[in-house]
Design a protein around this nucleic acid. Structure first.
Lengths: 213, 213
DNA sequence: GATTTTTGTCACCAGTCGGTGATATTGTGT
DNA sequence: ACACAATATCACCGACTGGTGACAAAAATC
């Protein structure tokens, strides 16, 4: 007989998923744990969300745990669209690194999606995928063809470009996820900002070499 | 009063860790589950290995769950050392992809190491790290300087080369790990061999563009 | 042959898990 | 004032977890 407010209780439960993910990781997510964290009886999870998967889905829909296309573009879509391909790729890499590094909960979810596939992770993945598609539509189908003053698309086909962007994203994802538990990865410093700057520089060099063709 | 053979029992327990990792993933690893899988009482885990972490350490020491430098070089160290830098990088990428894709247990362990850091994963990680250092010593410090007929090292410093190799490894690791639960990643087909060939081609193009400078 | 050490089985502990049915309390409409 | 629905609490279930102490049987030692 505490609050008697369904909306507030729902919000508390959803928020508890996030704070529990941040504190204990995805291993700490469970009906009992979430209810305990929210200071609420666990039976309300079943009543209001139909179970833990429903609660997770609600959490996935609420939060901004995935960077938007705008954020990956650096905050200014116009300036982004008008820059050269190599500049765009480099900027995207840097922004993606920053976006991931400051979203520990997102990293936790990414690892979760890698470690088990169930109703819970599938709900979260749907949100992520739609964001990714949105960004690639903007980035690949959009300014690539409009900026015909850059002739480097002769060397990199649209297919190759897509693969390269995905490879960059994959590498960044892996390194950021690893940086949560190890400081050094094959000689790369994943713990300090200067270490990440070195990674960004190496990526910029790669990109420049490729686009210069 | 079954077998009365300490060595065999130890082997059974160690093997059960592997088969359980393959069947249920790292979430299925536990004292009860491993003992049940081995058809042995769980108290023997404590007696023979001092606990689950000791058993995991023993498992890590036994298996060849991590590709050797020889395997990453393609089986012929001499031929590998005599090829050009871009050829070596491409070959290493391909071999690493193949090595990871045919080692599901290794993938499981990699995800495990990403998702929690404890005595169990630290034991496994030590084995992995030493293998990586071995390979990089062979690959970077070794043939890079001896093959001075290739002039592209003027553009790529040893530092950059190391970062690039690690970025490639990170990208491959991420994509292979993702391929266990999703078939498409941002348009890349991770489920078929032809999809992986396309990824290898994109990597080869990147490498060639970079080393050609 | 008797004793001790090794090897393995079993029963039990307290704690957590996901899940459910019964019940108490509050707010609302009549 | 009364009935009724919405909201939240509680007690319990069976199953599983990591961990331990008591004990039985086989093997090695004396």
């Amino acid at each position: 007989m505490k609050i008697r407010d369904k909306h507030l209780t729902r919000k508390r439960l959803i928020a508890s998923v996030g704070s529990l993910l941040a504190k204990k990781g995805f291993k700490g997510i469970g009906v009992n744990a979430v209810a305990r964290e929210a200071g609420v009886d666990k039976v309300l999870i079943y009543r209001y969300f139909g179970g833990l998967s429903g609660l997770i889905a609600a959490y996935g829909r609420e939060g901004d745990f995935w960077p938007s296309a705008l954020e990956l573009a650096g905050g200014d879509l116009r300036a982004f669209a008008e820059s050269s391909l190599s500049e765009r790729l480099s900027a995207m890499g840097k922004n993606f690194i920053r976006a991931l590094r400051q979203r520990p909960v997102t990293c936790e979810i990414m690892v979760w999606e890698m470690s088990e596939r169930n109703e819970l992770t599938e709900e979260l993945e749907a949100v992520r995928e739609s964001s990714m598609v949105e960004f690639f539509n903007m980035f690949l189908a959009g300014p690539l063809e409009k900026k015909n003053e850059v002739p480097d698309s002769q060397i990199l086909s649209a297919d190759d470009l897509q693969a390269i962007v995905m490879l960059m994203g994959a590498a960044i994802s892996y390194l950021v996820l690893r940086s949560r538990s190890i400081a050094l990865y094959g000689g790369l410093d994943l713990s300090s900002d200067s270490g990440w700057q070195r990674i960004e520089q190496a990526m910029a060099k790669m990109i420049e070499a490729m686009t210069r063709g």
